[in-house]
Nucleic acid binder design. Structure first.
Length: 535
RNA sequence: GCCGCGUUCGUCUAAGGGCUAGGACACCACCCUUUCACGGUGGUGAUACGGGUUCGAAUCCCGUACGCGGUACCA
């Protein structure tokens, strides 16, 4: 077995040297990768994971990470989608080195703004006989497909078997073609797939993949509106932008032979980037979709996305209460593993340990429970100050404006172990900000009596004059008083808890009291004493 | 249909010819806790099937089945 990077570095059969080998690349072969989304809506899990792997690979090898906007289909243009991409990358901490917004030496980075650069390559292919003009109308294509459609061939292709019966420069005479062109008849340029050729290319994840060119159709390269299709644009731009490694979803694998051929015809196959087709992220059934999220109640997009046309809102991981650290972590593990049993990785650890040959070959089904677990781990791991601003927003939704940051963070620190999502902080800590107005006294009903009431009255007094206000000192006073009253301290803890928070929940009672502070604690006990209804 | 890719506990995965196939999520039990959680300990649970190759196969080869992807002037 030989190392994937052999062709640009060394011929030693030493796969375990991958990382070192790439570092030795000469300057002109500097690693350059790109993420090339189509701005048609929210960015979903799979998209962000592709960004992540690109980013990780670039950082690991000291390369460049480029964001290229593939907006060649004007009919699918969605306002706001590009902004959404920037904001998502920013939130994730995966910002590109070059992009429409960040600039760079390979711009413009929006394909719609590069429109003029594609035509000449398509024409070049026509001249060399690797492509041809096709004048077929949509109706012509429909007619051809319905004429040829059978049970054995449900999806007839525009390929070598029918191209001679269509209206294109291969079937028409040179004079006819010339006149059609001169009369400005709309046309596309299609690749002329060779017959019975075998195209093999090496995929960094899957190894050698082979296709028979006879079964691939004559893909459109340049559309009637002059825009390139993905197939032409990806090859031309990867060349112009000096991309060295191209990572994309596995759904692109079937069209890879078209791209390989284009490279061969246009720039030489030896200049082609190394390909890696990433495994898909699956939903409960098939490729993860927005629908799955709606149906099963978990987010699919990185952040909230509102469709500008329908107004429909799709909830994102960010708003759901995920930490970017956790989001990245869970995405990284959906298709990659370093071979150890470690599961919680920081971004820096991922950069250090990532390697493309450890990326899995098979698709991974997204498990929302596991995703939540990652978030829980990160909430515990990070100091509350790292996410207190975000939690504040959830509190604001409950009409609570946080005034005292120190107090706020102290509370978050105390309850963070019990929270899975940032949105959970509210239910686990609201009582630190709002004194109870109602008390769940049901658990006390049978045990409440005048001696207990007396105990709490004296507790209130003693606490008022306590000198050091810590959980430990409060507990000491509490126990002493209980002993004097002849009541087991354990039996008095629940009543105290209910007085302080209103019910059977929350962290340790004495810790609650400590954080609440002397004044508030005493006031809540006094209030409860006057309001308890135990009859 | 055709082409391509894939297949280890329910899910994410480890094990690259050699130990009772390891871990995590979820689930169950127990412990901790006089609240609710968190946590801790333990348990149930997998190499799709059939053939080879080999002293020895989850691992290599072939076939079958199943799953997924693609089959647009969408990306």
């Amino acid at each position: 077995m030989f190392c994937e990077y052999n062709s640009i570095t060394t011929n030693q059969p030493a796969c375990h040297l991958h990382h070192d080998v790439v570092f030795l690349l000469p300057m002109e072969n500097k690693v350059r990768v790109r993420f090339a989304p189509s701005p048609t809506g929210g960015l979903h899990l799979g998209g962000v994971r592709t960004v992540l792997y690109n980013y990780l690979f670039a950082r690991k090898h000291g390369g460049d990470f480029i964001l290229r906007i593939e907006d060649t289909d004007q009919s699918r243009y969605v306002p706001g989608a590009e902004e959404y991409i920037y904001e998502t990358l920013k939130w994730c901490g995966l910002e590109p080195d070059e992009s429409p917004r960040h600039g760079g030496k390979s711009g413009p980075y929006r394909q719609s703004e590069r429109k003029e650069s594609y035509r000449k390559y398509a024409e070049q292919l026509v001249e060399k006989g690797h492509a041809y003009y096709a004048f077929d109308t949509a109706e012509d294509l429909d007619a051809m497909r319905s004429r040829l459609r059978t049970e054995a061939n449900p999806n007839p292709q525009y390929d070598h078997t029918v191209r001679n019966q269509m209206r294109n420069s291969l079937a028409l005479s040179a004079a006819e073609t010339k006149s059609l062109l001169e009369n400005k008849t709309p046309y596309v340029i299609r690749i002329r797939m060779p017959e019975h050729e075998t195209v093999t290319f090496h995929d960094l994840i899957r190894g050698d993949v082979t296709f028979d060119t006879s079964i691939v159709d004559d893909k459109v390269l340049l559309k009637a509106d002059g825009m390139p299709t993905y197939h032409l644009a990806v090859v031309v731009d990867d060349h112009l932008m000096k991309i060295t490694h191209a990572f994309r979803g596995e759904e692109w694998l079937p069209s890879a032979p078209v791209h390989v051929l284009l490279w061969r015809y246009l720039f030489g196959e030896e200049a082609m980037p190394k390909w890696a087709h990433l495994p898909l992220i699956l939903g409960p059934s098939g490729k993860l979709s927005k629908r799955d999220g709606a149906r099963y109640g978990f987010p699919v997009f990185a952040m909230n996305w509102q469709d500008p046309k329908t107004g429909e809102m799709t909830e994102g991981f960010r708003e759901k209460g995920f930490l970017p650290e956790a989001f990245l972590n869970l995405l990284a593990m959906l298709g990659w593993n370093d071979g150890s049993e470690q599961e919680v990785f920081s971004k820096q650890e991922l950069v250090d340990k990532f390697s493309i040959d450890k990326v899995h070959r098979s698709g991974a089904k997204f498990d929302y429970d596991k995703a939540r677990w990652f978030n829980h781990e990160w909430i515990r791991k990070l100091p509350a100050s790292a996410y207190s601003q975000q939690v504040k927003e959830y509190f604001a939704q409950q009409d609570l404006q946080v005034a005292d940051n120190a107090y706020f963070e102290q509370v978050l620190e105390l309850v963070k172990d019990r929270c899975t999502l940032l949105s959970d902080f509210w239910e686990h800590s609201y009582f630190f900000f709002r004194a109870p107005k109602e008390w769940d006294t049901e658990p006390l009903r049978s045990k409440w009596n005048s001696s207990r009431e007396a105990f709490f009255k004296s507790l209130s007094k003693s606490l008022t004059s306590i000198s050091s206000w810590t959980a430990a000192s409060i507990e000491t006073v509490f126990r002493q008083l209980a002993e004097q009253a002849g009541i087991k301290p354990g039996e008095l803890q629940l009543p105290l808890r209910i007085m302080l928070v209103g019910g059977k929940f929350g962290p340790g009672v004495f810790q609650i009291a400590e954080v609440l502070g002397k004044e508030e604690t005493v006031s809540r006990i006094d209030m409860a004493l006057t309001q308890f209804d135990l009859r």
